[in-house]
Design a protein around this nucleic acid. Structure first.
Lengths: 341, 341
DNA sequence: ATGGACATGAGGTGCGCACCTCATGTATGC
DNA sequence: GCATACATGAGGTGCGCACCTCATGTCCAT
């Protein structure tokens, strides 16, 4: 009743099991013509490798290294925690997922990637900003047969094998859609807060946000972006300035970090009516903000899902298996107080 | 390097492989004291069955039957489609998922469940309203060793093994949270539409909805529920009546089916300003409603996720494995035009 | 012709487990 | 004390695959 096995495949291709094995596992010493015959037979009988049996026989786990920036933003903390949790849950799937932190120095990071031994590592997951060094390091990894997946932020110029994350343009659109509806008809002024607008993600979000605001909520005036740049005092001062110029502020869209400070500032400012607040990423701060009512909506992505998806793709690629597009789509999730999990 | 195997387990328990096998697979002919010894050894060395190897050796797929009502609501269509898609994607996981439709007659349905051969079927997934017949049939299934999972609607009195779906009280709360925010401050009248309020799901949603409205949006007046009862003309008439009495209607919460008719009605009525509309379940109609702007938000659940989760639980139960709570939580998803996938 | 490089086949082993048979041991009732 | 029922062990087989060794065959350059 079952699917075809390598035995069926060998028979169909008219070669021995050994040759099938050589072709399937990319070992050397097979004529091109023979490889082609096997591949045709694969197509013909619809052979797909049984990943269970394979990993059983391989007697070796699927090893993945996840690189996440070392740093103290809450979101980074969430990512690191998600990697660790996912690692545990994937152990029973014969996947060993290791977390590795890296410091910003691009040389050091690229060197670390270059030192990866393809014998030890099947795939690499990267949450990292794109730099020329990284681009070269990724290319080098590919050449040595280590698959790469970018998560959360794409690395569009690094020819990474996969990107797993949300579409940030649509995330920005979603934020605008919500904030616009929350504010209702009539003119209003809203602020946009970002860590920095140089990051690709923030640019995309801002772009999507502005488009929807312009198209659907023309009466809403979006003030120039307040950039935090990881400097609490600077952000505080900028916010204070903003509020002095626009005491009628009715909404805030926060695209990145700094939410803790933002919420504290808003609480202190005692603005009435309370401004509508839409932020990104579920963290302890934003979770609490939802619960206390300081935040109206959080736009987020399921980190566990992202990591599992990344690993499924790396594995599927290695086994030359197709993936289920549908299951791998990363949703832009909207959380309010009442659907918080 | 690896996890303990049955060999380690046998050694630890001081019994043979045969006995370990008998205990693990619940075969008869083992003294209680011996069973206990094996189970203690399992605890001690932390043995967990390797599900891959097991299903390989079992030479038999995990067979699941999914029962979905035969009927022509769009949501039912989505559920059936999701079952079929999931079935395909799970084939490579050695899971055979079959879809079976049933007609409303509780006798016939219960008889069908009673006729299930435990030799053929490992688990049953049910999307069905609870009836006394069903309750008995589920109990009977359990007794014969067939695990059962209710999806979407719980069967609280049927002692089903698992329920996989959203918390409808929170779903109702979420709807109210959104609709209340969309309407902004000030008094407003809103309508609630339901197929029927006798279904447990609708009751829960309504309850959650009312609570949040009362607590957070006291100025909003929730009109009595309009019940469709699967009768298009009746619904149409009721809506017309409602609008005659309350021409200042500003919001609509639709808890179940009938959205197609509702949207047509609202379009024809030309209400200004356009009422804010929050509905449940993503269907072709509600998807289009989001895109055209007739619907502000859809509250939904990922059917593929629900089905995969149900199967993971049935399998984990059979193999006596723990599940990852986190991964199995079914989210109450909020969709607006811009995060539609 | 001869050696060497390369392509292929034959066949075995074991991964962790389920499932089966048969033999042997032990307690129980009469 | 003997038949009987039951508990347990020993050992084998195969699932689909990866990985390994060794033998044999084919072709080419010299």
């Amino acid at each position: 009743m079952g699917r075809p096995t390598i035995n069926d495949l060998a028979a169909e291709a008219g070669v021995s099991l050994a040759t099938v094995d050589r072709v399937l596992n990319g070992r050397a010493g097979v004529r091109e013509a023979t490889v082609a015959r096997v591949n045709e037979a694969i197509e013909r009988i619809g052979y797909v490798r049984d990943p269970f049996a394979a990993s059983l026989a391989r007697r070796r786990d699927f090893r993945v290294l996840a690189f996440v920036p070392d740093g103290d933003g809450q979101f980074l903390g969430e990512v690191r925690a998600a990697v660790q949790k996912t690692a545990i849950s994937l152990l029973s799937d014969r996947v060993v997922l290791d977390l590795e932190l890296f410091r910003p120095d691009p040389h050091v990071f690229a060197a670390r990637l270059g030192a990866i031994d393809p014998e030890d590592v099947d795939g690499v997951i990267l949450m990292a900003p794109e730099t020329p060094h990284l681009r070269d390091a990724v290319r080098h990894l590919r050449e040595r047969g280590v698959a790469t997946a970018a998560i959360i932020s794409d690395l569009p110029n690094s020819r990474v094998d996969y990107f797993i994350g949300i579409n940030n343009l649509n995330a920005g659109r979603t934020a605008a859609s919500l904030l616009g509806r929350f504010l209702g008809p009539g003119p209003a002024r809203i602020a946009v807060i970002a860590d920095t607008l140089t990051a690709r993600d923030s640019l995309d979000r801002r772009l999507g946000f502005d488009r929807v605001m312009a198209e659907d909520f023309p009466e809403i005036e979006v003030l120039p972006t307040v950039e935090g740049r990881g400097d609490p005092q600077g952000l505080e001062a900028a916010l204070r300035n903003l509020l002095r110029s626009f005491p009628d502020l009715r909404g805030v869209y926060s695209m990145g970090g700094g939410n803790r400070l933002l919420l504290e500032f808003l609480a202190r400012s005692g603005l009435t009516p309370r401004p509508r607040v839409v932020v990104h990423e579920l963290t302890p701060t934003t979770r609490q903000g939802l619960q206390t009512g300081q935040i109206d909506a959080v736009i987020t992505q399921d980190l566990g899902h992202i990591l599992r998806s990344a690993i499924r793709r790396l594995r599927a690629g290695r086994d030359n298996r197709p993936i289920l597009q549908e299951q791998e789509r990363i949703r832009i999730e909207i959380l309010v107080r009442d659907n918080l999990y």
